[in-house]
């Protein structure tokens, strides 16, 4: 059992610690049923990985959480508030507390790294003095070890650097929850490991709760406190890495072989 798992199990979460509660989530695109009664709970300070095969609906799930997609039925409660019945203004306020790291990084091509990091602050009307804003940008870049890229354009960065900058942009609003959509996809094994360690560091430093969507088992092993396995639109199993590695369910076991 890895050290992180032991530490997690010694501080078992209580029901009061739940920061996100997803119940009976259904979404279909035409006749293609993607989520079919999916359930998930995320506790304060926890890093939960949603594991599933490509096309199993993992990305659809976190897009529902952030309000980019509207599920057909079910409920998503984040920090006690029902996301699905919020108006635009409320949803924007909630999005300040939920960071989202996109699979494709989604850095704005026409802006420098500094402008990319400034954008969420400016748009969420965070009125900071120029000096404080600059300090926040530098702090976010320092966290990902890329202060020197501040005036570079995204096109000048490597895949791993883009991922780190995207993470810095997510951190700039100091969110309570971070959603990671395939954080290591398209990266070489060394960079993937670095990103996975960075996720763990961020988790510890900012005491965030995280949902990580992935099927990269090395990353899953590094970051996960708990893993939920998504199969056929439902949560098929949940447990720690070592628990699920011993699972009797064939489809679950396959991930750990």
């Amino acid at each position: 059992m890895k050290e992180q798992e032991q530490a997690y199990q010694s501080t078992q979460p209580t029901p009061q610690d739940v920061v996100m509660d997803i119940r009976d989530l259904h979404i279909a695109f035409g006749s293609n049923v993607v989520l079919d009664g999916f359930e998930l709970q995320l506790h304060k300070g926890e890093c939960k990985v949603v594991l599933g095969r490509s096309g199993s609906g993992k990305s659809v799930l976190i897009k529902c959480i952030i309000g980019l997609l509207k599920p057909d039925s079910g409920s998503i409660t984040v920090m006690g508030k029902d996301i699905l019945n919020m108006d635009h203004e409320e949803l924007d306020k909630m999005r300040m507390r939920i960071g989202f790291l996109f699979q494709s990084n989604a850095l704005y091509d026409s802006m420098t790294v500094r402008e990319n990091l400034e954008f969420p602050m400016r748009r969420h009307h965070i009125d900071l003095a120029d000096q404080t804003a600059e300090q926040r940008i530098l702090e976010a870049l320092e966290n990902v070890g890329l202060e020197h890229t501040i005036d570079m354009m995204p096109v000048e960065l490597s895949g791993g650097m883009k991922k780190r900058i995207a993470l810095a942009r997510t951190l700039i609003l100091k969110p309570d929850i971070i959603l990671y959509d395939e954080p290591t996809s398209g990266l070489d094994p060394v960079t993937s490991r670095e990103i996975a360690h960075l996720i763990t560091e961020v988790q510890k430093k900012y005491k965030t709760s995280s949902i990580v969507i992935s099927h990269d088992m090395s990353c899953v092993h590094t970051v996960a406190d708990k893993i939920a396995v998504l199969l056929d639109g439902k949560k098929r199993a949940e447990g720690t890495y070592s628990e699920l590695a011993k699972s009797d369910i064939k489809e679950v076991k396959e991930f750990f072989e």
């Binding site: 980019l68 699979q103 989604a106 091509d109 969420p120 748009r123």
Partner: peptide
């Protein structure tokens, strides 16, 4: 081309998440 590439690289979604219509 600009909006098309922004769409496929999720930049439009990122804008929405950043409190922008």
């Amino acid at each position: 081309a600009e909006l098309g590439s922004m769409k496929v690289t999720e930049q439009i979604d990122a804008m929405e998440v950043s409190g922008t219509n």
